[in-house]
């Protein structure tokens, strides 16, 4: 039972308030029609499913309803970081 700090509400709340929303950074291709079937399948179905620290999406379902990012270990379940998309992408760019 995780305790997740919603980066919007800025409060640690019980996992029951949130829903997991899949691996992060699975970006929708800009031009799907230009992709091969393999590339499209990779986007729709294939996942990294990383063992270790991994970024994933959560949504504060019973709270602010915002989607945000969580860096969490899939081995120990330890949450390393919670962040908004804006925060992570600005870091990525800088």
């Amino acid at each position: 039972m995780f305790s997740i700090n919603c980066p919007y509400c800025k409060e640690s709340r019980d996992q029951n308030e949130f829903s997991p929303a899949g691996e992060a950074f699975v970006a929708r291709p800009e031009n799907p029609e230009a992709l091969s079937d393999e590339e499209w399948a990779d986007y729709v179905f294939y996942r990294t499913n990383h063992k270790g620290d991994h970024w994933e999406q959560w949504v504060h379902t019973s709270g602010c309803r915002k989607y945000f990012l969580v860096k969490r270990s899939t081995i120990t379940h330890e949450v390393i970081e919670e962040a908004t998309f804006a925060e992570v992408y600005s870091e990525k760019i800088s």
């Binding site: 829903s19 929303a21 970006a27 929708r28 999406q57 949504v59 379902t61 309803r65 915002k66 989607y67 998309f85």
Partner: peptide, 13 residues
């Protein structure tokens, strides 16, 4: 509803 929010917030903000 949550799917629409997901698109909006994660892809089309």
């Amino acid at each position: 509803y949550s799917t629409l929010e997901m698109w909006l917030q994660t892809e089309w903000s």
